[in-house]
């Protein structure tokens, strides 16, 4: 049996760790809640932009925009990776990185160049360590602090390199939140924009389009793209926080179990120590009595 003092030291250590993981769990939960409010606030704008796209599509049969054109060949693609700034969030990072590596391998096999645009310090660290990657831009802003304006700027850059023909495709790799406990790294194509279809809530009345449907579409598309990327960022963040909360909850539970186990061992060790001492005293007293 281990020394009583050693057990006591370990018990204390486990309890301290439990306090930390508990605090981190609570921080993640609060951040998640705040983020959900933020995500909810962006929803009206996103859904209106989408329904407006459908409306314009319903009016103009022949929509022309360079952003809708699918290039014949694809030799270079831009990939936006939305990662995390910190670790300690379960398998969030490793799942994302695995999908990223898979994608890079597939692109290599197809002789397609991939230019990376990376959000999140952890993801940046990972990409810099990978060999043969083309890191175009790493954004120093904390993912949590990203606002619409920053996302808009990044999307503008990407759109220009698509229009300029430097890349023939723009993808985003982010983590989708399937439920509070299930997250899936997801690859989505931003450019070329999938041709808007006339939706189910298509207008029954004719809309006046001012100045013209083409002009409206020309201005709608950038907004639409920005919203897509912004939504990807928010969704990734939600996944990160939920994932961290879960990981920290598990750690807290484990620490609980361990501290129970250790307490029991400690008590046993202490008791057996006391029993041993008693036996010695009694034995000593008996020996004296005999004399």
């Amino acid at each position: 049996m281990k020394g009583v003092r050693e057990l006591k030291r370990r018990l204390k250590g486990v309890k301290n760790i439990k306090k930390i993981t508990k605090a981190m769990e609570m921080v993640a939960a609060t951040k998640l809640r705040r983020l959900q409010d933020r995500a909810l606030a962006t929803r009206p704008f996103a859904s209106r932009i989408e329904s407006m796209m459908q409306r314009v599509a319903g009016v103009a049969d022949q929509l022309v925009s360079p952003l809708l054109l699918v290039p014949e060949t694809c030799t270079a693609e831009a990939l936006v990776v939305v990662g995390a700034d910190k670790g300690l969030c379960g398998s969030y990072n490793s799942n994302l990185f695995r999908t990223l590596v898979q994608h890079l391998r597939a692109a290599e096999a197809e002789k397609r160049q991939v230019r990376l645009y990376v959000f999140g310090r952890r993801a940046q660290m990972f990409v810099t360590k990978l060999k043969g990657t083309d890191l175009k831009a790493a954004y120093p802003e904390a993912v949590e602090k990203l606002d619409y304006r920053t996302v808009k700027r990044v999307m503008g850059q990407l759109t220009r390199s698509f229009e300029g023909g430097e890349v023939q495709r723009v993808n985003v790799l982010y983590t989708r939140m399937k439920s509070m406990a299930s997250f899936k790294p997801t690859l989505q194509t931003l450019l070329p924009v999938p041709r808007p279809t006339v939706g189910a809530d298509a207008p029954t009345t004719d809309y006046l389009m001012e100045p013209s449907p083409e002009r409206i579409l020309e201005r709608l598309l950038p907004r639409y793209l920005e919203m897509q990327l912004f939504a990807a960022v928010l969704e990734s963040l939600a996944s990160e926080f939920a994932s961290r909360r879960m990981a920290m909850k598990n750690a807290t539970d484990n620490a609980d179990g361990m501290s129970q186990q250790l307490t029991m061992e400690y008590n046993k060790a202490r008791q057996s120590g006391i029993t041993g001492e008693l036996l010695e005293i009694i034995g000593g007293a008996e020996a004296l009595k005999g004399q």
């Binding site: 314009v56 009345t205 004719d206 006046l208 389009m209 001012e210 409206i216």
Partner: peptide, 8 residues
């Protein structure tokens, strides 16, 4: 009562 419209 304005007619349906989309404008920039």
């Amino acid at each position: 009562g304005h007619a349906p419209l989309v404008a920039t």
